[in-house]
Design a protein around this nucleic acid. Structure first.
Length: 292
DNA sequence: CTTGTGTCCTGTAGGC
DNA sequence: TGCCTACAGGACACAA
């Protein structure tokens, strides 16, 4: 469930807890979670590096690392290509916790990073779809194609009606499906696409190339605003979702959802019953009256 | 290039 | 009560 607002909230809350800490060692409980390189190399290369900064691109969390300065071991390590980014993707159910180093193994714990200062960073991921990668900045495009081909984030200043029309104006699939494509609008998932389509009055199954000219600015604006609102409320925590902030707190945007997870309930604007439909193997919710 | 479909993986909700 | 199936979701591989 983590989409851009959830990952951004995690980034903001994690940064003060992780910045300046050294990764002492790594415990990999589920090797499948390590996307690159092989788990053993991952463990060896990440140990000893210091976290200097947390960044985010779409739904990817990026921990910028630098070699430790004092020990001699680092000089030999510098001869290898510099592995300076720890990339984490939470996929559907992943979350990150910073805890005391004595904390017991968590339910669904997949990886534990032991940190300086008696802390640990724990990656909890029930569905084992999330991934961690250790890459150098220059190899990022070849290892993580999704990051390389990522489109603009709707909160980027250049994301506007013109950009959106260029990307989807000629395409014949549903606008909903296209909004989930990270090469078009980075960071959008099922929740925020449904909400943005509601706000712009567009039905999810509408074919992109048949959108009217006036609908592009509305959609671009709705995407931008729904993400900003999501960030402001620190993300969406559904009753059945595992999204939580690093200290276990829920987000607050679920109280503001207009359509997502509301099928069968009355529209908050016009009281019409919210409907749902399947688009490319995903569920989409909309108001039949407010959205045309 | 574009589009749709299946897969990864596991817990949980709902049906019977 | 307990078993079974469907479903959830993001990214990507693959076929048409």
């Amino acid at each position: 469930m983590p989409e851009l607002p959830e990952v951004e909230t995690i980034r903001r809350e994690l940064e003060p807890l992780l910045k300046g800490r050294r990764i002492v060692s790594v415990n990999v409980l589920r090797p499948d979670i390590v996307g690159w390189p092989k788990p053993n190399a991952f463990k060896r290369l990440v140990a000893g590096l210091t976290i200097v900064e947390l960044a985010r691109r779409g739904k990817y969390l990026l921990l910028r690392l630098k070699p430790g300065l004092q020990n001699a071991e680092c000089r030999t390590r510098n001869a290898e290509p510099k592995q300076n980014l720890l990339v984490i993707h939470l996929r559907l159910s992943g979350h990150l916790k910073v805890m005391d180093s004595r904390a017991p193994v968590q339910r669904f714990e997949r990886i534990r990073f032991r940190l300086s200062g008696r802390r640990v960073l724990v990656f909890v991921e029930p569905r084992v779809l999330g991934r961690v990668y250790l890459v150098s900045e220059d190899r990022l495009p070849s290892v993580l194609k999704g990051l390389q081909e990522m489109g603009l984030e709707p909160i980027h200043r250049d994301f506007d009606a013109g950009y959106l029309k260029d990307k989807v104006g000629h395409r014949r699939s549903s606008i909903k499906g296209l909004l989930l494509d990270q090469s078009i609008a980075a960071g959008i998932g099922n929740i925020y696409s449904d909400e943005a389509l509601f706000r712009s009055g567009i039905r999810p199954e509408r074919t992109a190339h048949r959108l009217r000219r006036a609908e592009y600015p509305r959609l671009a604006r709705a995407l931008r605003e729904v993400l900003r609102d999501g960030i402001r409320h620190m993300g969406t925590t559904m009753s059945d979702s595992r999204y939580q902030r690093p200290k276990g707190m829920p987000g607050g945007f679920q109280k503001h959802l207009m359509v997502f997870d509301r099928e069968g309930e009355p529209c908050r604007v016009c009281s019409t019953v919210i409907k749902s439909c399947r688009i490319g193997n995903r569920t989409s919710r909309y108001c039949p009256k407010c959205q045309t």
